[in-house]
Every structure is written in structure tokens, then in C-alpha cells.
């Protein structure tokens, strides 16, 4: 895509620079992807299904949550709602992509948005405005996309080997991943009231709504919205730019 003749060499250099600067993060995504693949196998997804999901959804957190909700037939409404809530942050990230993709044709810019994810978006923003910023962004996205796809497939294979995930503590890996991501986000934005309200609302929903149609997604929806409401209503939230 980037190697079309109309693109000058400097765009290619920016693409490579983006890919290289994303390499350390790719290591984290690799482990994350291996765990995802193993858990996908555990949740009953075939290798082909896991690869397909990684290729077309390409959204780590939402995919982990999807495994938690997974059943046959898949609860499409619950999966879509959970995906919407978890990935709604992409709305804001994509809103900042205008300068990155400046000068691109509308179809190409819209296509590039497929690769907006937390890690490579952050690296692209940290790089700051530069020549061929869009190509740089594509480089970061390409590395994470390939890593995520490969790690899921390998992890799925390893997952099938691990007969008893509990023995290896792999069942706890889910919790560790969520906890680590939550701590990382919480550390960057201190909002203790929001954390308490989210956790409290989630536990309440877990107790009261776990038998309903929402099932295990109820704590995510209720806790997530309660926490966001607190962020909107506290003066501190209004101050944060």
C-alpha cells in the first residue's frame, strides 16, 4: 500500500521510522496476543475464528471482553454494545487524526482509521507533527496489526497444548491484563472517586443483574457508565483538558 510508485522515498522512510518506534510496544502486544490466542482457544474459538477476529476486529480490550461474553450462538447485541462502550475512546483518538492524515484523499484517510488503536495512536501523537506523519502512523499500525495477528495464531496453538490453564495460572492472566490496563489508565488520570464508583456499581450490577439478559456484561456496562458519569460531573473532570 505504501510502496506505490507515487509515494516518494521519504514517506517510506517515515513508515519505517513509525514501525521501528512501535517495536518495544509490539513486544507487549505480542504477549497480550499470545494470551488472547490461548484464551480464545479456551473459550471455544477455532484457530480460523481467532485469526479472523484478530484480522477484522483488531481491538485488544474489546476482544478480551468478547471472550468473557462468548457463547454459542454469540450474543451479538451484548458483544456490539460492549465493543461500543470499550472502543468509544477511539472516537476521541480519531478526532485528533486530522493533522496526521492531512492532504490524504478522503477514502485513504478513512481506510487508515482502521489502524487507530491505543498504543500506536499514542506513539504517533508522541512523535509530533512531522513530514509524512500519516506514513509514520501507518508504520506503527502495520507493526501492531501483524504482531496481533501472528500472536493470536501462535497463542491459540499454545493454548491447545495447555491442558489445564488453571494449573498454569492462565485463567488469572485475564484479570492481570485488565488490572494492568486499568492501573495504567488510572495512574495517568487520578480520579479515585470515579474508580470507587465504577467498582461499586460493577459489584452491585454483578450481584443484582448477573441472572438477566445482560449476563456478565452488566457489570461492565453499569460500572463503566457510572464511572464516566462521575468523570463528567466532578469539577475536576471539567478542569482536565
Amino acid at each position: 500500500m505504501i510502496s506505490e510508485p507515487a509515494v516518494p522515498d521519504s514517506a517510506r522512510a517515515a513508515f519505517i521510522a513509525g514501525a521501528l518506534s512501535c517495536a518495544p510496544v509490539a513486544l507487549g502486544v505480542l504477549v497480550y496476543g499470545l494470551v488472547f490466542g490461548a484464551l480464545a482457544a479456551q473459550a471455544g474459538l477455532s484457530l480460523g475464528e481467532t485469526a479472523t477476529m484478530n484480522a477484522i476486529v483488531f481491538a485488544g480490550s474489546a476482544q478480551f471482553v468478547a471472550l468473557g461474553l462468548w457463547a454459542m450462538p454469540p450474543p451479538i447485541v451484548a458483544l456490539s454494545v460492549a465493543t461500543f462502550l470499550i472502543n468509544f475512546r477511539f472516537f476521541l483518538m480519531a478526532a485528533t487524526m486530522g493533522p496526521v492524515l492531512r492532504g490524504w484523499s478522503r477514502p485513504r484517510a478513512l481506510l487508515a482509521l482502521l489502524w487507530v488503536t491505543d498504543e500506536n495512536w499514542a506513539i504517533t501523537m508522541a512523535e509530533g507533527e512531522r513530514r509524512h506523519w500519516g506514513a509514520f502512523f501507518l508504520g506503527t499500525g502495520a507493526v501492531l496489526y501483524v504482531t496481533w495477528l501472528a500472536a493470536g495464531v501462535i497463542g491459540h496453538g499454545l493454548g491447545a497444548v495447555v491442558a489445564d490453564p488453571k494449573r498454569w495460572g492462565l485463567d488469572f492472566a485475564f484479570t492481570v491484563v485488565f488490572l494492568t490496563l486499568a492501573v495504567g489508565l488510572a495512574r495517568r488520570r487520578r480520579a479515585p472517586l470515579m474508580w470507587i464508583v465504577s467498582a461499586g456499581a460493577a459489584l452491585l450490577a454483578d450481584r443484582l443483574l448477573s441472572g438477566t439478559m445482560l449476563g456478565s456484561s452488566a457489570p461492565v456496562l453499569v460500572g463503566g457508565l457510572a464511572g464516566a458519569a462521575v468523570a463528567a460531573l466532578t469539577p475536576r473532570g471539567a478542569d482536565a483538558a
Partner: peptide, 13 residues
């Protein structure tokens, strides 16, 4: 601010 905190809130929940 609400949108910003939503991912953290969801992960905590």
C-alpha cells in the same frame, strides 16, 4: 472528561 475516563471505568468494572 467522561469519554476520557470511560476506558478506565470499564476496565475497573
Amino acid at each position: 472528561a467522561a469519554l476520557d475516563q470511560l476506558p478506565a471505568a470499564i476496565l475497573i468494572a
